[in-house]
Design a protein around this nucleic acid. Structure first.
Lengths: 204, 204
DNA sequence: CTGAATTTTCAGTAATTACTGAAATTATAG
DNA sequence: CTATAATTTCAGTAATTACTGAAAATTCAG
């Protein structure tokens, strides 16, 4: 297992990039290797290709598994485990986003929600809560939107993205239709989103 | 400068979260403090509130500045510099996304582009390039979309997000209109996006 | 200019995170 | 079962990153 310069370069880049995220170099490189590999690889092959210790590879794979970014399979007449990356880049993208949301967004959202439940005991806290609420509402909206979008077929999503901001044209159109039709157009989700859940009792 | 438990909690949470990203604990806490603070703070106040050394605060502020997440101002009859976070959460969100794109996406995109320019020298590299191309195309599309969306007014964006996947209804509608109108509906950006720039000469 | 106030830099050190090799555990072929 | 192959764990160590205090540099009022 030695990599071509092309693959080598890709793998090294991902290692560097990985460390800009929370992910460490090792994990980034392992993932990149699996991603470009034509066939599933076993841990020893990975260790050899990347010059890592066998145990390091084991840990890296475990980490990738926790991100749901690897597939595990067995080959006939071979006891070893073989790893590969999902082929569909859209699926990878989605998994990554989901997992990041779970780890980075959800805890923050729940912390904010909790903090907003309590009545502020003074003017200072009132302002702190105000700021927290602004952040909470934005994150919550983005999260809900993301949830929706996640359900779309990659093709639909792709189509939407390629349209770019042109969708706003349809928004305007919608508004006109609403007027014409006397407000009977399909309602947006705006109403649902405006729950008062983050509006605590004001203590003044 | 001592924080209320509410603010304290927020600041600590952000410190933890920061370290899940590339950002370190110190920087996360400083930002959180500025974010909830009612008034701009100088470096000494920050150092005292968070129990960091003055020099650590100086470095943290420099880091935040490089992310364009702080505003700097002066108070009358005071030589010290006062820092604050922008008030508009949408603007913050956008700046953050922009900056992350610049640091994490753009380098990857350009590495991929370069790698896809060269003619593959064998079957293995052909496959590697195929995978790289898939990744490149997805990232490029997402980036272009993001660029577009970034130009929208926060209100429009908010409206779009609240609609969630309902916009797809309009997509379908558009397709029908197209058929009815004999293909004279506004074109999407699909054509522009399908540049052959990442299709290198095949060497076989 | 001068000197005090303020900010930045940086070498040294502390703390954290990454990595290894050896040993323990688990899985499976015979 | 038993023996061996494969994987995981983990204590120790290496490497990296974060933080501090002291000194240098910068800013600015007088």
């Amino acid at each position: 297992m030695n990599l071509t310069p092309l693959a080598q370069n890709f793998v090294l880049h991902f290692g560097e990039m990985g460390s800009r995220w929370g992910i460490n170099r090792t994990v980034g490189q392992i993932y990149a290797l699996l991603y470009v590999s034509e066939r599933p690889l076993n841990a020893d092959e990975i260790a050899e290709a990347l010059n890592f210790s066998r145990s390091n590879v084991s840990m890296g794979l475990k980490e990738l598994e926790s991100w749901r970014l690897t597939k595990l399979q067995h080959l006939p007449n071979d006891r070893r485990e073989y790893f590969s990356a999902p082929e569909d880049v859209w699926a990878i993208f989605r998994t990554l986003a989901e997992e990041r949301r779970k780890r980075e967004i959800d805890p923050t959202l729940s912390m904010l929600r909790d903090a907003l439940m309590a009545a502020p005991s003074n003017a200072e806290d009132r302002h702190v809560q105000q700021r927290m609420r602004e952040m909470h509402d934005l994150i919550e909206m983005a999260t809900m939107w993301f949830n929706d979008v996640q359900k779309l077929e990659p093709e639909t999503l792709q189509q939407l993205m390629k349209m770019g901001t042109r969708v706003t044209k349809f928004l305007e159109m919608k508004d006109k239709l609403k007027v014409v039709a006397g407000g009977r157009a399909t309602s947006t989700r705006a109403a649902d989103a405006e729950t008062p859940s983050t509006q605590p009792p004001q203590s003044n």
